[in-house]
């Protein structure tokens, strides 16, 4: 465990050093949070809730989106391409160590992002959560785990750096803009809302929103089941198809 932590600390330093995750995962959602609040914070986004309340949950998911659909698959593909994963096979440790430490780095990015958005919202924008905080943390964790499993799946299915780059762009940007993570879902025309509903992250954000606003969403259990299902299926396929080199 101590040795794993040593490995993780170095991987975490490298992740922070590159800076991408801090910009896309942390600075961006905080900036958008402030912007949305300046434009429409107290306006009603839907029945009985404001844009600030609606965007709180969705912007907290941006860190998950950045880590799951960019950070994790790109790092794994890069390490595979550089034969770093292969090199781990020639040591007493399993390459699972380095995968684990990079997943943990992604989790830390998502957490850092969520904490920053929450701090800014509560301290500067006067946000108060109507729902149960513990339930909200649970919904955040479920969203994180299910999205990370999709990120792992992307890294497993794509064989080359090029294809991973293409797929991350194809997945990351729609998830970022169409899931309601950045542009409020309530602003979408109903046709686009239907399309957005197909994105797994949309479902995670819907769940987090519902929990944060204390709404008894009738299909909340359906979403939970869906996310658990996504996690199970993606994890099984990734483990079955994963290539170390």
């Amino acid at each position: 465990m101590k040795r794993f932590l040593k490995l993780y600390v170095i991987e975490q330093k490298l992740a922070l050093r590159s800076g991408d995750m801090l910009i896309f995962g942390v600075a961006m959602p905080v900036g958008i949070m402030i912007l949305i609040n300046m434009i429409a914070g107290q306006k009603q986004a839907g029945e009985g809730f404001t844009y600030l309340q609606s965007s709180f949950a969705s912007l907290i998911a941006v860190g998950i989106c950045a880590a799951a659909f960019m950070g994790i698959p790109l790092t794994i593909a890069d390490y595979r391409d550089k034969k770093i994963l292969k090199h781990f096979f020639t040591t007493p440790c399993s390459p699972v160590w380095i995968l684990g430490s990079d997943m943990l780095c992604g989790g830390v990015t998502a957490l850092l992002s969520a904490v920053s958005v929450a701090l800014v919202s509560v301290v500067f924008l006067g946000y108060e959560m109507m729902g149960n905080i513990l339930a909200f943390i649970g919904s955040w964790l479920l969203t994180l785990v299910s999205m990370f499993s999709i990120g792992l799946l992307m890294a497993s299915l794509c064989r080359t750096i090029k294809s991973v780059n293409a797929v991350t762009s194809l997945v990351y940007f729609p998830m970022l803009f169409l899931s309601g993570a950045t542009i409020p879902y309530e602003l979408f025309p109903s046709g686009l809302q239907k399309v957005a509903n197909f994105l797994p992250l949309t479902q995670g954000i819907k769940l987090m929103k519902a929990v944060s606003m204390g709404i008894e969403l009738e299909n909340v259990w359906k979403i939970v089941l869906l996310l658990v299902g996504i996690t199970a299926v993606s994890t099984v396929i990734s483990v079955k198809t994963f290539r170390w080199e």
């Binding site: 040795r3 794993f4 040593k6 490995l7 170095i10 991987e11 330093k13 490298l14 050093r17 590159s18 890069d78 390490y79 391409d81 550089k82 034969k83 770093i84 292969k86 090199h87 781990f88 020639t90 040591t91 007493p92 440790c93 160590w97």
Partner: peptide
């Protein structure tokens, strides 16, 4: 083991790489 044309993580420093490898043994 030294594998042919080894590459390392982007931005990693010599001491960090050594520490990372040491942690495996």
């Amino acid at each position: 083991v030294q594998l042919q044309s080894s590459n390392y993580q982007k931005n990693i420093r010599v001491d960090e790489l050594c520490k990372e490898m040491s942690a495996l043994y």
